[in-house]
């Protein structure tokens, strides 16, 4: 049995954005999805180093896609979660959920 990687907060945000985007997850779309959902635009350096680190850990995989003229003929790098990445994300989110259990943060006594 392999040990699941522990995920930081930003790693989880990036993984959730990739999941939401599905087949069209690459640098630009991941960044705008995070900005739209969290109202915080991630620094480009932070995003790319996080993606590289997660790829090295085997949490995400990437492949090169099509190049467009507006990108100066440079290929897009698409991302998707690996099985290990999905399992690590589920584990992290389950931990959040169990911490939230009993707390009614959205409009309850703890709001």
């Amino acid at each position: 049995m392999t040990r699941l990687a522990s995920l930081g907060e930003f790693e989880q945000v990036v993984l959730l954005a990739i999941l939401r985007l599905g087949e069209s997850a690459y640098g630009v779309t991941i960044r705008s999805e995070i900005a739209a959902c969290t109202r915080r635009e991630p620094a480009p350096g932070a995003l790319y180093t996080t993606l590289d680190r997660m790829e090295e850990k085997g949490i995400v995989r990437s492949w090169l896609g099509d190049a467009t003229p507006q990108r100066g003929g440079r290929a897009k790098r698409y991302f998707a979660l690996t099985r290990e990445g999905r399992a690590a994300l589920i584990k992290s989110q389950a931990a959040y959920q169990s911490l939230l259990k009993g707390l009614d943060l959205l409009g309850g006594v703890h709001a």
Partner: peptide, 29 residues
């Protein structure tokens, strides 16, 4: 691919943003 991403956003955000973002990427890596 990183420079391609930044180039894709350059028409909306401008040249200054492009070079500043590139500098931040270089610093980060």
């Amino acid at each position: 691919s990183i420079v391609g991403d930044l180039l894709e956003l350059k028409p909306r955000k401008g040249s200054l943003w492009f070079w500043l973002s590139l500098a931040r990427v270089v610093m980060a890596v």
